[in-house]
Design a protein around this nucleic acid. Structure first.
Lengths: 197, 197
DNA sequence: CCATAAAGAACGAGCGTTCGTTTTTATTGA
DNA sequence: TCAATAAAAACGAACGCTCGTTCTTTATGG
């Protein structure tokens, strides 16, 4: 089989994905041309189109990868040790983005695109659903250990908290990406103060 | 002398602004062509370009109008009656968007564009700043009446809460615009449960 | 050696904007 | 009161440019 080896193929694919992530984060999905992505990847048009169907497909792949990594963080952190408190759950996910050096503007751009593009919307919905499940599981474990905060049971308490807690995360992402002089410490302090602990 | 009357001019300007808001909300800023905005406004290219410098300027104007209205809601509600509780502050702003029939996807699109376009970023920053001021003022008044929730004084308590509370609002906007089967009631219930009351 | 990956020039659709022309409007002089 | 007029607003065809994609050619890994 005169084909490229799997290792080579994966490496190329990754090379393109990382270049696309950098380019999209810097200039925005809509404002980045395929030519720019291609230049950033140090490849040719034909090569890139051999790996992805087009610009849209490329952005979706970048988004899936990023969202997948966020979920992995949370699952890993929740698996070992004592259950994290609500505020800690938030911090685990947000710290993950920081340590990875993820440009949060990329996520906000994804949101914007997803309001209008059904394929992207599906990607976001799937990502939120998976991440929401991880949030719920982590919170349930914590409420089980802290029944004083869960008068109606850990399940109900977790269920009620998930949307708002994720909302606080989304608010963090938005403000961090957008606001001049955003103080992430102050934001998380404020969150810690109102969340059960 | 032979110029159009101010009333006429304002009406035309509004006609364009409203058409643009509808068009952008439906298809997204980037995916909406000027031709579509112009058709929606039932005017000609030249007419629209007589009122706005271009597509970007038009979107900025729409955004400013929308953000301005949100702020007006809050200021009005906070002015009369007893100070609203934190959760109520949130509801006032979010209810305003609903009663106006504002498509929240428009805001998420604005965010996305603002990550990449300095002019839009300024619009968003200014909007958040003004709205944040209104939040702060409303919260301070409530904490003054409920000192049991403000051990370090109403000013500090309000200051600490503003970013997270706005974050919860941004989370609401995102989820409402994006998630299939979003339950706004459940979201606000969850918020009410953790916010001081 | 040849199947296929990579290259990159070329294409054509779609876009925002411009500009020369036509229509409408408010004013003015009879 | 009402033409006449000049200023402007509105019109819409056309332009020039960008960009995503395709396709033919060349290089190369197995």
């Amino acid at each position: 089989m005169p084909k490229i080896s799997d290792a080579r193929r994966d490496a190329r694919r990754n090379q393109i994905l990382e270049a696309a992530q950098r380019a999209f984060a810097a200039k925005g999905y809509q404002h980045t041309s395929m030519a720019e992505v291609i230049a950033e990847a140090e490849l040719s048009t034909g090569a890139v189109y051999g790996y992805f169907d087009g610009k849209r497909d490329l952005f979706a792949a970048v988004a899936k990868q990023v969202l997948g990594r966020r979920n992995a963080d949370l699952v890993a952190a929740a698996a070992d040790g004592s259950p994290p408190a609500p505020a800690e759950v938030l911090e685990i996910v947000l710290d993950g983005t920081r340590s990875e050096g993820l440009d949060l503007r990329l996520l906000v751009q994804l949101w914007g695109e997803a309001t209008v593009d059904p394929e992207m919307r599906d990607v976001v919905n799937a990502g939120v659903k998976v991440l929401g499940g991880a949030f719920r599981a982590a919170l349930r474990r914590w409420f089980e250990v802290h029944p004083e905060h869960a008068p109606d049971g850990a399940d109900v308490a977790a269920e009620n908290l998930v949307p708002v807690l994720m909302g606080m995360g989304q608010g963090f992402i938005f403000q961090s990406a957008m606001l001049d002089g955003f103080d992430s410490r102050a934001y998380l302090d404020g969150a810690r103060r109102i969340l059960p602990h």
